[in-house]
Every structure is written in structure tokens, then in C-alpha cells.
């Protein structure tokens, strides 16, 4: 298998007349953590959702883990098994307990038997520090716990790559740390990750590579220390200035 897990070439996406992605190229190697930053409306979430085809690109090619997703004949369900997705709004199944949230797709999609699915689910709950919540319903958990359970749910499918769509944006500030800690631990374990985030410190410390997107294009790309530490483009600089000093955002 090739060393490149995610390969996006020449991707365009428009919603009606609104052009959201204007020719994106992106590749993520095995074990690499890539963070995508940029202002809202820049197309970064759409890009991420195109990587597992929740949104269908209008043009371009997406290859993930050997599956060409943009091929109309691809078995999309089979391809998605290898792509973990974590949403901003958690999206745990409200009618199922935490344990069932982690086992349902293992059972129904991967056809694992109950004992194995259960064991893998518990291993992953332990990984995210929620082993004591197996029997809880999602609504009984805090936002941070729900998001960690959602991460464990995705991990239970043993994906080749994890996609994170602003995983901490819907959380109270004091709960962000727990989720970021889990993500950092995943990165340390060698998981391939593509993360859309507003957490600049996380991007700086954890990402191997950072992409700055604005207005549907990748403006700047490189090691975190360069893109966040010494941005070359004016647009990157002004974005970082606004994000890092929100109180003084309007001062040049």
C-alpha cells in the first residue's frame, strides 16, 4: 500500500452559484497530522467533508487509502469504513447507549460478533477515559465526554485516517482540553489525522503540517512553526492576528 493515505487533486466544489473550493490539492502521508486553519467560510469544512464524500466535489479527484472516492463505481460504504469522522456537533446516536454507539457499526457493518465488538468498544472507551460511561445515554454526558465518545466510536472501526471537523468548536472552554488531550494522544500513537480547527496552540504543537485556507484556496502551507510562527502571506498574518489577539483584532 502506498504511503500516501489521502490524495486530493484539483478539487472544485460549488453550492449553486457559490464557489466554495477553487482547485485544492492536498496529500496526507501515513502517520501525518495535518491541520487546516482559516476564517469561517473559507471552505475548510467543505474540503474535509469532500474527503469522505459527505459532500460530492464538482471536479477533481479524491483517493483515500487506495479507494478512488470520486469514481462513480466506488463502493463508498466500504471506503468509508476506513475513514473515521468526528463532527463539530458530536452526532452520537441519541437512542443508543454509549457502548451501543460504539458497537452498532462494528456489528452491522464489519459483521464482528458481539463479544469482539464489545471488547474493541471498551478498549477504545478506555483510551478516551470514558470506561465508566459504557451504560450512559449520550444526553447524560457533557459535551466534552460526548465528543470523546464520538472519537472512540470512530476509532472502533479501526480507520486508516481520522477526519476532525472543528471538534472543539461546540464545547464550553473548560471542556476543550480533555478532547484535545485525546487527539494529541492519538497523534502520538501515530494516527493519520486531518483536522479542521481554530485551536492554534494545538495546531502549533501537534500538527506536522498546517494549511491556511481562505476563499476556497490554500493560501499557505508548511510546518506549523512556519505557517503559524512566521506566516509569509498577508492574509495569513491578518487572520492569525485576529485569532490570537481577539481583543485587539481591529488594531493593525
Amino acid at each position: 500500500m502506498s504511503d500516501v493515505i489521502v490524495e486530493v487533486t484539483g478539487m472544485h466544489k460549488a453550492f449553486g452559484s457559490l464557489e466554495v473550493l477553487k482547485g485544492i490539492d492536498l496529500s496526507v502521508r501515513r502517520g501525518e497530522v495535518v491541520c487546516i486553519i482559516g476564517p469561517s467560510g473559507s471552505g475548510k469544512s467543505t474540503l474535509l467533508r469532500c474527503v469522505n464524500l459527505l459532500e460530492e466535489p464538482n471536479a477533481g479527484k479524491v483517493v483515500v487509502n487506495g479507494f478512488e472516492l470520486t469514481d462513480p463505481d466506488v463502493d463508498i460504504d466500504k471506503a468509508r469504513r476506513t475513514i473515521g469522522m468526528v463532527f463539530q456537533s458530536f452526532n452520537l446516536f441519541g437512542h443508543l447507549s454509549v457502548l451501543e454507539n460504539l458497537t452498532v457499526a462494528q456489528r452491522k457493518v464489519l459483521k464482528r460478533d458481539a463479544a469482539e465488538a464489545d471488547r474493541i468498544a471498551r478498549d477504545n472507551l478506555k483510551r478516551v477515559g470514558l470506561l465508566d460511561k459504557v451504560a450512559a445515554m449520550p444526553s447524560q454526558l457533557s459535551g466534552g465526554q460526548q465528543q470523546r465518545a464520538a472519537i472512540a466510536r470512530a476509532l472502533s472501526m479501526q480507520p486508516a485516517v481520522m477526519l476532525f471537523d472543528e471538534p472543539t468548536s461546540a464545547l464550553d472552554p473548560e471542556l476543550v482540553g480533555d478532547v484535545l488531550a485525546v487527539m494529541r494522544q492519538l497523534a502520538d500513537e501515530g494516527m493519520t489525522m486531518l483536522v479542521v480547527t481554530h485551536e492554534m496552540q494545538f495546531a502549533r504543537e501537534v500538527a506536522d503540517r498546517v494549511l491556511f485556507m481562505d476563499d476556497g484556496t490554500v493560501v499557505e502551507e508548511g510546518p506549523a512553526a512556519n505557517v503559524i510562527g512566521q506566516p509569509r502571506h498577508e492574509r495569513t498574518r491578518s487572520f492569525l492576528h485576529r485569532v490570537l489577539n481577539p481583543v485587539h483584532a481591529t488594531e493593525a
Binding site: N52, L54, D77, K78, R80, R81, I83, G84, M85, F87, S89, N91, L92, F93, G94, V104, A105, K108, V109, L110, A150, R153, A154, M157
Partner: peptide, 20 residues
């Protein structure tokens, strides 16, 4: 979001309808 989560886990549309 419930449907997107199910599809992201590799469930087919029919499976998603029945299970989620």
C-alpha cells in the same frame, strides 16, 4: 447529523434508515 454519522461509519442508506 445522525444520518451523516451513520454514513461516515460505513452504513448504507438502507442500514442507516433501519438502525438510526
Amino acid at each position: 447529523g445522525q444520518i451523516e454519522a451513520a454514513r461516515s461509519l460505513g452504513m448504507s442508506q438502507t442500514r442507516t434508515t433501519i438502525t438510526v
